[in-house]
Nucleic acid binder design. Structure first.
Lengths: 233, 233
DNA sequence: TGCGACATAATTGGCGCCAATTATTACGCC
DNA sequence: GGCGTAATAATTGGCGCCAATTATGTCGCA
């Protein structure tokens, strides 16, 4: 019982940390993730870094090129649409379960999160916004009664966020998200499944269109390590 | 440049091979996958085995218990149902895309695969049956026009098959599958989306109910290496 | 004879080193 | 002066060793 052999947890946690960093756009799409940089940035051993990178590659958050390394996945327009459509399928399909599993206490908590998000829109960091937003959707899908569905939804969300915007691309998009959250709470209160499904679908489409609109016009995917456009956050 | 530049491929392939072995029930649910056994069974190095195991763990095909090892995931009834419901959502949602993307040539190939499956039911190994069945569904979902959806469907299929039956649990189930395949081809020919969706949903439910019916009545999940029934926690 | 504790054996898993591969730079030739 | 080529530098990735942990077997004690 000395210093915990929680080595295992650290490894898994590292993958999450790196994923988080990617979500926060510390590393941008197409950028190479150098193992040496990561090991000192996260104070981890090379082996742990590689494990984490492998895990993220399996989850498609990053892409692995043999003998070249790992880089943040760059999602082309077509794939972006495919993810969006699949998300709509899954997230709207969760609505009946949510309606069945929701209770007053959960609605109250969702409402509170929606309020906190509104607050964060005005005076909060992008990280806070992102976290509250995640918490809101997490909580909502958590009550759908189907853990596998929930997990699949989350996997897809993570994947689209890896390369798209985590942080909202425009202030308008942020306001739209905010408005949607409150509307969702209302639909839940009213027990209006159809409306909730509509809101969710709209929420997804709006977000990802915004994201696309703000993506760099074209350019290509591979940039080599040396001359990287490193705009440190 | 001597002989083995394809090291990278071998590693990824190994995960597939092990997954395949699990599908074929070479290793049964709850069984521990000893690294030493695997490295000689698949003629791989320990490192490659571990990588493959990690990958499968991320994909939830197997489960990782720190300092104990990896074992074939054991899916409880509740999770089984959750997977089933999610599969139905996704696979029926793929139908419109399939209808839009299908062409005569593909229908012909599907029909041929359905015939080959019928043949395999009579005189084929279970491996052949399983492969033809996979090919059939793969081909069908491949034309849905949404690669992400296709991939998600496949991930879920793999996951359920890891612990459920790959190989059909009863001859009756096999005959039902066979019949369904031909019916699906017919629905495709007729352009009847509703019917196809019904068939798919039914196909999934039937398969997984059969699987459950043939699972060991109750008993505990974990068998440790020796023989005992270690089920405390 | 049954149960608990210790010793032994087997297995997992962390980690670092160095070869293989690729990017970068320098040089010389056209 | 530009370009192809060779040397150099930087990075990735394969792999084995050994410590940590857990399972198994044995012995002593009640």
């Amino acid at each position: 019982m000395t210093t915990r052999p929680t080595r295992q947890k650290e490894k898994r946690a590292l993958a999450s940390e790196i994923a988080q960093a990617i979500h926060m756009r510390a590393y941008r799409p197409g950028e190479w993730l150098r193992q040496i940089d990561l090991e000192e940035a996260f104070k981890a051993t090379r082996f742990d870094v590689r494990s984490a990178l492998d895990e993220l590659a399996v989850r498609k958050t990053i892409e692995h090129v043999p003998n070249r390394g790992y880089r943040v996945a760059e999602i082309d327009l077509k794939t972006q649409r495919a993810i969006r459509d699949t998300r709509i399928i899954l997230e709207t399909a969760a609505v009946p379960g949510i309606m069945a599993g929701i209770d007053a206490a959960t609605i109250a908590r969702l409402s509170e999160l929606a309020d906190r998000f509104s607050q964060a829109v005005l005076s909060g960091t992008r990280i806070e916004q992102s976290e509250i937003n995640s918490a809101f959707h997490h909580l909502m899908y958590a009550v759908c009664g189907n853990p596998v569905l929930e997990e699949t939804i989350w996997g897809l969300r993570d994947r689209s966020r890896g390369s798209s915007v985590t942080v909202w691309s425009s202030h308008q998009a942020l306001l739209n998200s905010d408005r949607d959250h409150h509307a969702m709470v209302e639909a839940l209160r009213a027990g209006d499944a159809t409306r909730l499904a509509e809101l969710i679908a709209h929420h997804i489409v709006k977000d990802m269109i915004e994201a696309q609109a703000h993506a760099q016009p074209s350019t290509e995917t591979s940039q080599s390590r040396g001359s990287e456009v490193r705009d440190e956050v």
